[in-house]
């Protein structure tokens, strides 16, 4: 599986503390076994309440968060992020889901997750994604890039960068390449820019996805039940 596009070496020296939130115990233990030794799993949660409690107690670097969770008010992963708003600056959330439904993915990203990957991802890829998110970058799978292109449209913004409802020409290029299956490194090579610049563009897109007040975005996500 090659759905996660962060194959570049972004390993840090220190280990990353992670909390896994998923209501399936089998998946949690499988994920724990798959993760690299440099990732330290400090807690687990199966429901919204458990997750909020364990995240507040452990203050991990990264939370691997299932989109669909029992408990709480029925908001799932979105509610966990909302309940951990106080530490959103230091703890980062990476959404994991079996669902490809745009409304789920967009909801959890807009709540504050730094990326989204599907559960069929390999152990090496998820390890890489965890480090990337811990380093403050956004993790975009080709599918998420496709969602973004679909939601924002494929025409570039007239006034670059400042507009929240449109992507700049460069951001569009980056999103297109990611949707085509390029890794960050390959995107950088293709566009003759540095990996750091690619990461900047991706983070900018993530910010637009989170902050855009364009009501079409929500409407689009609700209408578009599947990709």
């Amino acid at each position: 599986m090659n759905q996660l596009q962060g194959t570049g070496p972004v390993r840090q020296a220190q280990s990353v503390r992670v909390v896994i939130v998923d209501d399936h115990a089998i998946f949690r233990s499988g994920l724990k076994a798959d993760l690299d030794a440099s990732i330290q799993v400090v807690g687990e949660g199966a429901t919204v309440e458990q997750a909020i409690a364990v995240i507040a107690r452990e203050r991990p670097d990264v939370v691997l968060l299932d989109v669909h969770l029992p408990g709480g008010l029925g908001g799932g992963g979105r509610e966990v992020i909302a309940g951990s708003a106080a530490i959103l600056g230091t703890t980062r959330f990476l959404a994991l889901s079996v669902s490809d439904a745009a409304e789920d993915v967009v909801a959890v990203i807009r709540a504050g997750a730094r990326g989204y990957v599907t559960k069929t991802i390999s152990g090496a890829e998820i390890t890489d994604a965890v480090f990337r998110v811990a380093g403050g970058d956004a993790v975009f799978s080709p599918r998420l890039a496709g969602f973004v292109l679909d939601a924002f449209g494929t025409a570039p913004a007239d006034i670059a960068d400042d507009e929240l409802d449109k992507l700049s020409a460069r951001e569009l290029e980056v999103m297109r390449l990611i949707a085509r299956g390029y890794s960050y490194k390959e995107v950088a090579k293709e566009l003759f820019i540095s990996i750091k610049t690619v990461e900047t563009h991706v983070s900018a897109v993530l910010r637009k996805l989170q902050l855009s007040s364009r009501h079409e975005l929500t409407k689009w996500a609700a209408e578009r039940r599947l990709l």
Binding site: M1, N2, Q3, P142, G146, L149, T154, A155, R176, A179, R180, G181, Y182
Partner: peptide, 22 residues
């Protein structure tokens, strides 16, 4: 050999398909 990535984009200008392997 591995996973194949396919990207389809349909816009006003036409349709593009990208098929990428590793």
């Amino acid at each position: 050999g591995g996973t194949v990535s396919v990207y389809l984009e349909v816009a006003d200008g036409g349709a593009d398909v990208f098929v990428k392997d590793r």
